[in-house]
Design a protein around this nucleic acid. Sequence first.
DNA 1: GGAGCCCTGGGACAAATGTCACGGGTCACC
DNA 2: GGTGACCCGTGACATTTGTCCCAGGGCTCC
Lengths: 201, 201
Amino acid sequence: MIKVLLAEDQGMMRGALALLLGLEEDIEIVAQVGNGDEILPKALETRPDIALLDIELPGRSGLDAAADLRSGLPECRVLILTTFGRPGYLRRAMEAGACGFLVKDGPVEDLAAAIRRVLAGERVIDPGLAAAALGAGPNPLTQRERDVLAAAVDGATVADIAAKVHLSPATVRNYLSAAIGKTSTRNRMEAVRAARQNGWL
Amino acid sequence: MIKVLLAEDQGMMRGALALLLGLEEDIEIVAQVGNGDEILPKALETRPDIALLDIELPGRSGLDAAADLRSGLPECRVLILTTFGRPGYLRRAMEAGACGFLVKDGPVEDLAAAIRRVLAGERVIDPGLAAAALGAGPNPLTQRERDVLAAAVDGATVADIAAKVHLSPATVRNYLSAAIGKTSTRNRMEAVRAARQNGWL
DNA sequence: GGAGCCCTGGGACAAATGTCACGGGTCACC
DNA sequence: GGTGACCCGTGACATTTGTCCCAGGGCTCC
């Protein structure tokens, strides 16, 4: 019997997947959580064989949680299940020790199959994505550039960003300019868009 | 037997919901589509009693499709099922003739129940959302202001927008300024954010 | 001890952006 | 016929934004 932990924020998706996997005779859902912070505690409590994690969760992200599990419960495999097939997500998932990476676009039948293959020791990766991940180079952005860019979402002004990151406005503009250059875009919004697209956050 | 058409772009979600609803003994999925443009043709072909529509679909949006069904297949009820509980979405769904509005956050059990209640002639609306919809006033934006704002997503420059909407750059800036004023925001990005939040698009 | 990178700031400048006041046009409504 | 919406455009203006210089301090690696 394969014990599964399921982390997914959309209630309907979570419920549907749980019911679905429950129908498989060799799979048992031992825990369901809708928040990233609950993943590690629940896993320690229920000792699943595999954790099925969404990336974009309230609280701790699925990628962070994957790293937590790696150190806190190493025998538990991690399978990332996400809406967005961004190359950088895949890269970061692998670095965090995930054994598989599926996008939610695919057919449901893939899911149970992927779980069994991961448990068998295989690595399961969406094939189209693997190619894209190899195409996109490594993250060219510096730590501070990422911070500033992340603070620039939804139209914050330079002053807003400076306050949020505790930097001088002049410095913020320098970082923004650098990020815009490195992403080869024309303004901050395009830069955040490009950075998110590649999973550079 | 209740005949259901299911429109949802995420393959996994679509498959899971279909399987789930198929387990109910009084429900039958007669069509599944992942694209808004296929909704009306498929509905005319399979004559469902109720259409379960996501809003954000490739091609025609679920709200547009709801209006199509209203005129093309009036006996088919429409139940909107969406990720985003934006007040304006609810308003527009009702104007398009939808009989129900559910958010994907809720438990799966609600879904089959909602389908039956809609078929019984009831209107099913997420209760929290109904209050929010009454709170947010009607759309203050003019047609052109909406166009310009919609073209301003993801960091397009004024020249870009002008080209996309076939207007003079100066005029675009005027509309942008008006939209910013009406949304009481500070720049275009905050304006599009606010407008989308309220479903003013 | 360099060389190189990142972090942090500043100043100066061109370009883009947001605001305002002002034209003229159509159309509906009273 | 007048009033008031919305449409489309211009010109002028202050502010913000993006770019390019510069400089110092920290850090690692050779």
